[in-house]
Design a protein around this nucleic acid. Structure first.
Lengths: 198, 198
DNA sequence: GTCTATATTTCGATAGAC
DNA sequence: GTCTATCGAAATATAGAC
């Protein structure tokens, strides 16, 4: 007889927590880190500051949670893309990977840009590096199907190239995701085709 | 008899101004936008806050000057690279351009990263876009020598790809500029070699 | 558990002495 | 022209009522 109540409480609790995170994301998108105050977050989330501090010990914790959430989604998306294309052609597999990375970043490009900045200046540098390495491993597995001489560095570069293109497009306000995808595809395939003979 | 004194005064004045800008740059590199207070800047520059406010009306003006300075240097460097390679081979010309962009960004990568972020959230967006377009024009002129079917979009992409690679290297603390250059070169040439037939 | 009110700190900017 | 001292605004976080 106690479980239901507890679950309900936990569910409500989770909803509030998510609302706070989403409010933070929206504020970051609209005004960057400047107007990002705990009061503003609470207001936007529809709760009071007092309540906010019951869910998070401080502002950094909110940002850290937001970042971890985004990271997990990205990693899952890329893993899924790799698994989904195990029977597809190497070129299709690489394309799926680019698409997964683009999805994540292009869906909310401003937020992605802000998050990337904050990651650097929060005490999450180690976690960030660890995730980057895990991502690179998945990318590498796929890229190798197309270009067997590729190494971890090339996998990292594929990610960096894609990120660079998406960021630029986002800042320029480029609306056409399909055109962007076509160019990202060309950049990645072009890069891989230029591998030095070993 | 008055000119020398006036010049001396102006020279001293310029020295102080430069010290303030450089102090800002160093603080940005070491702690990002967080600890970047006017008091901290003044202290690091070896002057008092009162003096600082004689040279700049507010904090934003300091950042705007820093950004404009960096931009001018980058543009000059790229223009110089283009002019220097007018008689060289197309491939060498493109390489020189990449090197110029890398120089600028890789020399002080953390600062470049911070500046790029601040640019977005300052009232300099128009200026930033204008400069990006001018840079793209210069890049385009060179890129066309190698790939005549390239357009402005491809020129922008070349810049974005290079930036993405440099940023990633900077964040990963990669020390070897030469290896990075080799990969940036491969990425750019690879991208251009994949141009769609028109 | 959520709110309002407020204590505390930090920071941008200014005043006024020298 | 430069400094120290300080004001006022904003922001983080907490206290205490309900």
């Amino acid at each position: 007889m106690h479980q239901p109540r507890k679950q309900a409480r936990q569910a409500r609790s989770r909803v509030t927590q998510t609302a706070i995170i989403e409010a933070t994301a929206r504020l970051l998108e609209s005004q960057g880190r400047n107007g990002l105050t705990t009061n503003a977050i609470a207001e936007r989330a529809g709760v009071s500051v007092g309540s906010l501090y019951q869910y998070f010990p401080n502002k950094e914790a909110i940002l850290a949670t937001l970042i971890r959430d985004k990271r997990q989604k990205l990693l899952k998306g890329m893993q899924q893309a790799v698994l989904d294309t195990q029977d597809a052609s190497p070129a299709d597999a690489v394309e799926a990977l680019i698409r997964a990375g683009m999805m994540h970043q292009y869906e909310r490009p401003t937020l992605a840009f802000e998050v990337e900045y904050i990651e650097q200046r929060l005490e999450l540098a180690d976690e960030t590096a660890a995730l980057a390495e895990e991502m690179a491993q998945w990318v590498l597995a796929t890229v190798r199907r197309l270009q067997p001489s590729a190494g971890l560095q090339e996998a990292r570069d594929v990610v960096a190239i894609t990120k660079g293109l998406i960021n630029a497009a986002a800042m320029a306000g480029e609306p056409d995701g399909n055109a962007l995808f076509a160019r990202a595809r060309r950049a990645v395939l072009g890069y891989l085709s230029q591998m030095p003979e070993t």
